[in-house]
Every structure is written in C-alpha cells, then in structure tokens.
C-alpha cells in the first residue's frame, strides 16, 4: 500500500512537472508577443495570412523592423543595395504549394479593396504575377508581389520607404556586370 502511494505521488510529480513546463511555454509566448512588434511584419501580408491560415498550410519568412535596424548598421558601404535596404522596415514572404488560384484571386480582391495601386501584371506560360503599391503622400510605403505559379502561391511584402526605380536598377546592374564578365571571358 505504501508503495502504491509512492508510485501515485511520483506520477503526480510528473504531471506537475509537465504542467509547469507548459506554463513556462505560455509565459514565453506572452513574452514573445510583447517583443513581437520588433520582429513582426505589420502589413497586409500578415492580414492575408490570418485570413487564410485555417485552410492553408503556409510557410513564412519574416524580417521585422528590429532586424532592419541592425542590418542597416552593418557596414556594407560598397553595396549599391545598402541604400535601399537601409530604408526598409519589414519584409515577409508567405508561400504555400496548394490553392494557388483561389489565394491569388482573393489576394487581388483584398488588395483592390484596400485601395492598393495595381502597378503591373506579368503573365507568362505557367506564372501569373502582380505587383501592388501602397502610398502615403508621394512615398511608396508598402510593396506587394503576388505570384501564382502552377498552383503554388507566393506573396511577398516589403515595407518602409521604397524607391522602385532604385530597385529596378538592381537587375540591370547585375545584367551589365554579367555581360562585362562574359566579355572578359571572350578576351
């Protein structure tokens, strides 16, 4: 009988331990929420994720304001993109490998409803892509790109002070560099 009591008490201890670890977790989560604003993306991509997270298995990658602050302090003076990155405050990529058509259409609808400006649409064989911008005064404060590639859906959002002309130059520069390298090879 004594042994039985001992066994039961040990079992209860285990349960208590478990309960404690879960309460630790909730506490951690609470702290996480408190700090979340530094690491989260507070834009329409998050709203879109919230709206569809029950029915879709999203993968996300987020870079919050805190990280951009720290990234800006990195000394990449020579990097031509450093100027663009320095002005950003958030980045979020949302992707899933199913429901592409539905999600794409809903994203277009949501962005139109929120008065995002439809910058351009690029349709290729397998891929449909749209870019949207949101302005505050003259400045672009949020840029959204949605892609439906054969049922795979991707939504990319960047926030901050966005200069699209500068961004457009990046790939040109890389092209030019690439061409220069090819020329060097020929010589």
């Amino acid at each position: 009988m004594k042994k039985l009591f001992l066994i039961i008490s040990v079992m209860l201890c285990t349960v208590a331990l478990n309960a404690q670890s879960t309460s630790d977790e909730t506490q951690e989560k609470h702290e996480e929420n408190h700090e979340q604003s530094h690491y989260a993306y507070a834009g329409i991509v998050s709203n879109f994720q919230k709206k569809h997270k029950e029915t879709n298995d999203f993968k996300t990658m987020t870079i919050g304001p805190k990280m951009f602050e720290l990234a800006a302090s990195l000394s990449y003076e020579d990097d031509p993109e450093a100027n663009i990155i320095r002005k950003l405050t958030g980045l979020k990529i949302l992707s899933t490998e199913s429901n592409g058509d539905v999600l794409y259409n809903d994203a277009v609808k949501m962005l139109n409803d929120k008065n995002y400006y439809n910058l351009m649409e690029v349709s290729e064989e397998q891929q449909t892509l749209r870019m949207f911008t949101n302005k505050k005064g003259k400045d672009i404060t949020e840029f959204i790109m949605i892609i439906n590639e054969g049922g795979d859906f991707t939504m990319i959002g960047i926030r901050g002070n966005i200069n699209l002309k500068e961004i457009a130059k990046i790939s040109n520069r890389i092209k030019v560099n690439g061409l220069a390298n090819i020329k060097k090879l020929d010589e």
Binding site: M61, E81, I85, L91, I167
Partner: peptide, 23 residues
C-alpha cells in the same frame, strides 16, 4: 514553418535576394 530572421546578416542577405527577384 514560420521563420523569423533574427540575425542581421541573414536579414540583409534575404532582403537582397527578394529585392533582386522584385527587380
């Protein structure tokens, strides 16, 4: 599934990749 970047170097690199894709 929900990756939150917590290293500035990585944040910089990922952002650069995304900017290139947009560009």
């Amino acid at each position: 599934k929900d990756e939150i970047i917590t290293s500035p170097e990585e944040a910089y690199k990922e952002t650069k990749d995304v900017l290139l894709l947009i560009s």
